[in-house]
Nucleic acid binder design. Sequence first.
DNA 1: ATTTTTTTTCTAATCATTTAAAAACCCAGA
DNA 2: TCTGGGTTTTTAAATGATTAGAAAAAAAAT
Lengths: 340, 340
Amino acid sequence: MERLNIDKVAKLAHVSRSVVSRVLNNHPNVSDEARVRVMKVVKKYNYRPNAVARSLATQSTYQIGVLTSRIEDESLGNGYWTLLYLGIFEECIRRGYYVRLSFYSSSMSDELHEHLLNPHQLDGVICLNEEVTDLTVETLADKDIPIVLVGHNPKHPDISSVDVDNYDGAYTATKHLIDLGHKQIGGIFGDQNVEETEHRIRAYREALKDHGLDVRDDYISVGSYTQQDGYNTLNVWTEDHKQMTAVFCASDTIAMGGMLALHEKGVSVPGQFSVVGFDGLPISRYMIPPLTTIEQPTYGKGERAAQLLIDKIKNIDEKVIQENLKPKLVIRKSSGPAPA
Amino acid sequence: MERLNIDKVAKLAHVSRSVVSRVLNNHPNVSDEARVRVMKVVKKYNYRPNAVARSLATQSTYQIGVLTSRIEDESLGNGYWTLLYLGIFEECIRRGYYVRLSFYSSSMSDELHEHLLNPHQLDGVICLNEEVTDLTVETLADKDIPIVLVGHNPKHPDISSVDVDNYDGAYTATKHLIDLGHKQIGGIFGDQNVEETEHRIRAYREALKDHGLDVRDDYISVGSYTQQDGYNTLNVWTEDHKQMTAVFCASDTIAMGGMLALHEKGVSVPGQFSVVGFDGLPISRYMIPPLTTIEQPTYGKGERAAQLLIDKIKNIDEKVIQENLKPKLVIRKSSGPAPA
DNA sequence: ATTTTTTTTCTAATCATTTAAAAACCCAGA
DNA sequence: TCTGGGTTTTTAAATGATTAGAAAAAAAAT
């Protein structure tokens, strides 16, 4: 079967090329008669307009880029990302957009980085880790390619972003432990120098303070969102801080590593020690014991980011929106009353 | 800054448009003098050729599609996928290709499915779950879009594919348990009607037989690759099959669910019961106890699939290649000697 | 110095669409 | 019958590259 194009379809339907185009794009000023003739040919030969040529003519590709910063290999393997991609993808498809996936690592050359963002091919970009944006923003800014961030970034107050309400989540988690009677509560946090971390730490501190508990700096650790980090930290703490009876972990992965350390030391969870996580990863309900955690709407974050971006591309909404989605405390078995 | 195109560059460099094109594409027959003049302008104005226009002219987009079948939400959240995407992506980038991500679900209309594969925009497609291909193959076949599968599919012997050596992995896992002295070994397997499952079951059976052990049908369960399935199965088995002392799980997620069930019943791992998984997910080393598992080269599978696809796109290799990558037994704490 | 060959450059067609603007058509009202 | 208005259709000019093939320039051979 030879290649079909709009001219061939036009000829077969006995109309000119522009009529076919107008039919296919639902433009007005087409007689019913012509429309029927064109559609008949389109159906018969299963013609689909060439999206590349269309992009060239309209100067828009209906394609958005998703840029994931590859901070650590390990953290890419925790199940969070696919759900985020899924949220982005499904919203995009609903609105007629395709998704191009890229991973950015800091070892990448600037040229390659620019190549990833080749602006002729992308109508917009979603950046999934704050680290990406510094390099990215300049590349895209003067080309007028809209950006949306997942995770607010105070360095870019003029870019729309979606995030979970980190303060709310961390406060709720800490309060949950306080309500259970714990007095000595540690906090293990992820990436330094990120607004997210700052908010979570502040919430943790204020929750303690609001309930008349001491805030001790040696009960706070800031590392990375990895099992390794949770494991290491609790390994040290269980020896150094014998009075601590609970810990708030800023991710489920940290909590997972932490619980392994506790297990190895023979500390029972939740009997002797309570653990609360953050994220609500699908795996959290199958940890041993099942993890009490702050469930964030991962899929929803992706969905909302795509919404904001497409609105911006279509100029539906010009103003900057920085949105916080509410997380939800899910109580499972890893948290219990403070030991007597 | 007004839009730059090849004509403007040509004018600025005092050459014709075709000279600019040849410089940019490293074609011969350009004088050093002209090349220098063109490059100077390109650098000065940071000109990048419009990839869409290039695609239209060359009839290739340098873009491949990755189609993930969305069988179950839960299984998308297990950390396997991002590593696979990463492998695909990094190989693609090395060879100048972009990656378009799509999720396919069976509830999707045929029209949308076709939309995802819009052949004008894709030079090739990688299908990540076997389920996808039945619908996909026809759509792409007569348009001459190459396909590569991750996971062999006997229904499509003429399509190249990459997989882990399922037989080898399952045999090794089972033998590991046999070597530890276990006589009553269960097997929990994933998706039915997939070659992968068939091979893993066969390997499990043959390993038992080869070592003089009985194969009992009531020791075999075929469900899905989820924690839920592992949990349910071991919940039942620990009551029904008191003699069983070990289980081979066809995924780490199954093992994770299974270990939770054992934990809840007070069965100690590995003291009373040994568990071996399959996949080597990043989380497996932090399970309680850390999981003995068959580590498959997830990243490598993605990488190799991309290699095969791009070779096919470039006509470097015409023949069908169905490749098995070797897995590796990683011994951790979840497996130990059979109880006396 | 002239012809031949080689190298380089330019012209123009092509890829497949969209979309202004011009042209054609139809019909009612004068 | 002619005119004016609206509707529909066609024409042709973009969009921004690649790439044969013609033309021109430079180099080599006679």
